[in-house]
């Protein structure tokens, strides 16, 4: 099981990032989440969601979604661009194992852009 992303359903509200941050810190921030809203190319309205796991980054970009091994990223692979780097030092997604029900990011997304598979 893992959290996947349908990026074309994403509206860029950032709730997934906030909910995941709450899971880790019981507070509200955008710095410790295992999920990151990619919004670095604002002028192009190019946005997506990145989920960090122990092994890879699941990158949901508008042109498609794919998992990229962390090792490939360190060799200059096709991550989410420079602004994806902070997510590499964050905790990996644990599917909110300490809570009942679906992961917080999946539960809070208003448009079903994140789902469990």
């Amino acid at each position: 099981m893992r959290v996947k992303v349908n990026p074309l359903l994403c509206t860029g509200c950032g709730l997934c990032e906030l909910a995941c941050g709450y899971h880790w810190d019981e507070a509200f921030s955008l710095i410790s989440s295992s999920v990151m809203l990619y919004r670095a190319e604002e002028k192009k309205n190019y946005m997506g969601v990145i989920v960090k796991t122990e092994e890879d980054l699941f990158i949901g970009r508008p042109e498609g979604a794919a998992a990229i091994k962390l090792g490939e990223l360190s060799r200059g692979g096709t991550g989410g661009g420079a602004s994806a780097k902070p997510i590499l030092i964050r905790e990996a997604c644990d599917l909110c194992e300490s809570t009942t029900g679906e992961p917080q990011c999946v539960a809070i997304c208003p448009h079903g852009a994140l789902y469990l598979e």
Binding site: C13, G14, L15, L18, N45, Y46, M47, P62, E63, H111
Partner: peptide
């Protein structure tokens, strides 16, 4: 694509493209 403000379940704002085809997603 429509875009939302922070934490908003509605995405009020449409983004419109006129310097390239609006179907371009990449």
């Amino acid at each position: 694509r429509a875009r939302a403000c922070f934490a908003c379940p509605s995405a009020c704002f449409p983004f419109v493209k006129y310097n390239e085809a609006p179907t371009v997603m990449e």
